[in-house]
């Protein structure tokens, strides 16, 4: 078996009385889409935050390519190759679509301290940014203000920015939300191919999409993983049916 790209070991995190993550252990292997599903408030976004480094765990560790990155913050982990998208859009709304993508390219290039050259005129940066927009189908919107995009388009732009980072692993928090059936289908197709470049930890509510493309699925419930397996395993798992999919078939 190939070594996992991302490994979460016993991650726990509380918010007051809420245990949003309880000793979560899971891994993300090369070339796979590992979906994370669970009811609202199960702790999916919390887990993405703990992995990306924007949240600190109370216990447990995060490994990236075998290296312990638990002590690094979000900036450090992004530099080490974690590309993340947010459930609630985090884009710079006053910038254009292209500028948001350029920001990713700037971060990737490590040349943010260049004060006297134009970002828009830099060929390498622009190429990287435009290529990412092209891939998610936003290149026509390049010069629009991000605030003027639809919710679905903002999700796509989040994905595009993550692409400019050329990360070792993607962490995506509900990228399909607000896309509509057609957009959702197209993004599913895209992620299906993207996993060859870097594995994806995918939080998604759209069950058809999840069962169609995930290699493995983990089910989260009250901060705990109650099952991990292939789509087939998950469909059959009685605990999952009761906790999440509805127990009418059990």
């Amino acid at each position: 078996m190939t070594a996992p790209v991302v490994e979460l070991r016993g991650l726990s995190r509380r918010f007051g009385a809420v245990e949003a993550a309880r000793a979560v252990t899971l891994d993300l292997r090369p070339g796979e889409i590992h979906a994370l599903i669970g009811p609202n408030g199960a702790g999916k976004s919390t887990l993405i935050g703990l992995t990306a480094g924007s949240l600190r765990p109370d216990a447990g560790s995060v490994l990236l390519g075998g290296e312990d990155v638990t002590r690094l913050d979000a900036v450090g982990r992004a530099r080490k190759g974690l590309g993340r998208t947010f459930q609630v859009s985090s884009l710079a709304m006053e910038l254009t679509v292209l500028e948001n993508a350029l920001l990713g390219a700037v971060g990737r290039s490590g040349q943010v301290m260049r004060l006297f050259r134009s970002a828009l005129c830099d060929r390498d940066l622009a190429l990287l940014a435009r290529a990412a927009l092209e891939r998610v189908g936003l290149v026509e919107e390049a010069d629009r203000r991000t605030a003027d995009l639809s919710h679905g388009q903002r999700r796509l732009l989040e994905v595009a920015v993550a692409l400019t980072l050329e990360p070792r692993a993607f962490l995506m928090d509900e990228p399909m939300a607000g896309l509509g059936a057609e957009g959702s289908r197209r993004l599913t197709g895209f992620l299906d191919r993207l996993r060859e470049e870097a594995p994806i930890l995918l939080v998604e509510h759209d069950m058809d999409a999840v069962f169609a493309i995930a290699d493995r699925i983990s089910v989260l419930c009250y901060g705990e993983i109650i099952a991990t397996g292939t789509a087939e395993d998950i469909r059959r798992d009685p605990r999952v049916r009761i906790a999440y999919l509805g127990d009418d078939a059990a």
């Binding site: 992004a78 985090s90 006053e94 910038l95 500028e99 301290m113 260049r114 004060l115 970002a119």
Partner: peptide, 20 residues
């Protein structure tokens, strides 16, 4: 410049800048 772009983005969304 790239610096100005990032500075302006950090004003609008700090999490966005950290994530890249």
């Amino acid at each position: 410049s790239p610096f100005g772009l990032a500075l302006s983005a950090a004003r609008q969304s700090e999490a966005r800048v950290r994530t890249v």
